[in-house]
Design a binder for these strands. Sequence first.
DNA 1: ACCTGAACACCGTTCAAGT
DNA 2: ACCTGAACACCGTTCAAGT
Lengths: 266, 266
Amino acid sequence: MAKTTSDDHRDPDLIAVQAGSAAASEMTRPAGLDRDRILTAAIAFIDENGLSALTMRRLGATLGVEAMALYRYVPGREDLLDGVVDRVVETLFDKDDGDDIYVEDHNGWQDYLMRLAHGVRRIALAHPSVFPLVASRPPAAPWVRPPLRSLRMVESFLGTLTDAGFPDQAAVAAYRAYSSFLLGHLLLEVTQLGAQVSLLDQPEGDPEAQANTDLTQFPALLRTEKLLSRDKSAAEFEEALENLLDRLERVLRETRASDGDAGDLA
Amino acid sequence: MAKTTSDDHRDPDLIAVQAGSAAASEMTRPAGLDRDRILTAAIAFIDENGLSALTMRRLGATLGVEAMALYRYVPGREDLLDGVVDRVVETLFDKDDGDDIYVEDHNGWQDYLMRLAHGVRRIALAHPSVFPLVASRPPAAPWVRPPLRSLRMVESFLGTLTDAGFPDQAAVAAYRAYSSFLLGHLLLEVTQLGAQVSLLDQPEGDPEAQANTDLTQFPALLRTEKLLSRDKSAAEFEEALENLLDRLERVLRETRASDGDAGDLA
DNA sequence: ACCTGAACACCGTTCAAGT
DNA sequence: ACCTGAACACCGTTCAAGT
């Protein structure tokens, strides 16, 4: 390895980071520090080294600069993280970015909800180490529900459903159900991604023996182990999404039948 | 306030903590340090001061001891947090603890799933600042899905469903759907709890004016603001849970009709 | 046996000083 | 105008030393 500072019982993160940053600082010199460049660097850093490895000092090094220089452009670490979350979430609206995932022009509300769900899932899978942050940073307003984090997203969601004939109350209920579904599914999906790599990182003893910790006490587990290990995230996501859409469709139809204010859902 | 160390642009957490810890250290002196006592103290600390305020040094102070003493009983901070999570999760199985929420003896699998859901929800609401940890700590095995975090819980879940006639595959699919639902719902619920208090904590400017940040650009939001602010978490939880149970019941019935291996669900 | 003091390598953050 | 050095108050963690 490179120049590490003598004593060696340190955070395992450090090793990877220090090895990488030397090379990285060469390329990014072009100066012109900038809030945007800092956020980009922070996201890349988290993607590569994990959230816990991100410090102001290390991020500075990545940009060829001392940590203190960052404070010209970012009020502090917490704000940096908020910025990272906003940035990542807003890539949803970047034209050119994806395979036809524009949430703006759509064919009906079902299509809209599917595009939105797939778009957010794409983000989560692209930045698995950032997503927990998307899920857990305190929202701007109390009724903003992660992972739908911006006023713009909430507005577009509610606007689309109410335009499609959902009464306000039903649209709000749908917003809540939808955000719960997205959060639960995607957070579990990225968590499991993280678990995969962290198992490969630290192979204490042989990797086989560790996993089989006397499952003999747990017959049902033992029996379904193969099933449990099979990853069906994509299919499950689809199935749960379709199920939610069916439920909403039912609500909408019932609303139309008895044209009062019956769209409660909760 | 009390004795704070001169300069005062510090983490807002600190103020509350220091004020409290002086009083607390008086009572807890009875020595006899102990892993159990440390975990209990850590949970209480997080409940009162939030996760970010928990440091080894501060926790030590709470127990009338220097931070270094903790290392006799706990390998390190990360392990401490794992211990906290295990401890909180396992209160589910404590007899005497709750109003008839025993997951072990039940009347049918639906009853079991309802008790389990309500039990986990009770935990989440009792320790809203701990729950994000329950949700995000890397699980012991890759197929352990938060917030159902222990082998014991997974075993009991799968055992109950398969005993009730679910084919293994359907039981596993149910386990996945159920954990996603719980995680999404409860994480959002505690997040919103946290948002409430953090709004009261830092009232910059008048608390009214801040919230109304030119919502004029967001008509649907503006129109539904009242609806959005109304908290219906409990009812929504119930409704989503019942919906999930209905879905599972359908799967089970279909399985029984065509008694093959049709219980796919995913 | 159990706790502490002192030390080490790191943090975030401020601010006067350099260019 | 933009960055840095030095400093401050804090971290987690180790280890020899105290009782």
